[in-house]
Simulated assay, not measured.
Amino acid sequence: MSSTPSISSLPRDIDPRKFAQQGLSLEGKIAVSDLPRVAEVLAEPGTEVGVALTFDIDEQGLKVVSGSVNGTLSVVCQRCLEPLPIEVEAELKLALAWDEDEAKNLPRRFDPWIVGDGATDIYAIVEEELLLALPMVAYHEEPCIDASLYQSGEVEEADVEPKANPFQMLEQLKSSPKS
């Protein structure tokens, strides 16, 4: 009884409980500009991500959502500060829960998705998964800036002048014999 609507752009608000009861699947694209927290961390947010979601009821009677989010996103290289395209893929394995208490009792193989009655914003879940899939630090694999610009923090001995120790006089007083 599973049907896959052919949708180029996914709907924002759905009722995931009804989708799970009906065993529906969604497949389509979401513009990154519709995901403000993801767009904020990208160098060029004018792309789309592909989303495939399957709603179902598992053998324990839990309403679950599985699927993937993938696409090529342009982040900022932390070396040269230029755009860097990266492939991002996130796998979803969620179980629907009414509240925090029910979410705590879900099997560990599922991440909880707390939903109430009625429609829920699926873009929020996609946005969370993309944020988790993005690398903390991104940089080009090939050298993108001149190696002479790197500094290790080491200073040659010849360049360092010895500094006078302000406590040298105290050290001398401490080591002198008491009279």
Results as ranks from 00 to 15, higher is better:
60 Q>K: 09
99 D>L: 08
119 A>R: 08
80 C>M: 10
64 V>A: 03
123 Y>C: 06
32 V>M: 12
71 G>Q: 05
35 L>Q: 02
63 K>M: 15
155 V>A: 09
89 E>L: 03
64 V>Y: 00
169 M>N: 12
67 G>H: 10
92 L>T: 00
127 E>C: 02
86 I>S: 00
32 V>D: 02
94 L>C: 00
69 V>E: 04
168 Q>I: 11
128 E>T: 09
130 L>R: 11
66 S>W: 00
125 I>A: 00
173 L>I: 13
130 L>N: 03
103 A>I: 04
67 G>I: 08
69 V>T: 13
35 L>H: 03
103 A>S: 12
162 P>K: 14
101 D>T: 15
165 N>H: 04
51 V>A: 00
141 E>G: 12
172 Q>Y: 11
44 E>D: 14
120 T>G: 08
50 G>T: 11
65 V>E: 03
117 D>C: 01
171 E>K: 12
157 E>S: 13
74 S>W: 07
30 I>V: 14
111 D>C: 06
101 D>H: 09
90 A>Q: 01
142 E>G: 12
50 G>P: 04
58 D>R: 01
111 D>V: 14
147 A>W: 12
44 E>Y: 11
142 E>A: 15
77 C>P: 06
111 D>G: 00
117 D>V: 11
86 I>D: 01
45 P>N: 05
135 P>F: 14
37 R>W: 00
77 C>G: 11
128 E>W: 02
134 L>F: 10
132 L>T: 07
104 K>S: 13
35 L>A: 02
152 S>Y: 09
88 V>C: 07
159 D>R: 14
67 G>M: 06
88 V>K: 05
146 D>R: 08
106 L>G: 01
164 A>R: 13
74 S>Y: 05
62 L>M: 05
88 V>R: 01
44 E>C: 10
162 P>H: 09
78 Q>F: 12
64 V>H: 01
53 L>H: 09
55 F>H: 00
56 D>G: 04
31 A>M: 15
134 L>A: 05
124 A>W: 06
133 A>K: 04
56 D>L: 00
65 V>P: 04
60 Q>G: 13
122 I>Q: 15
170 L>N: 02
107 P>H: 07
70 N>R: 14
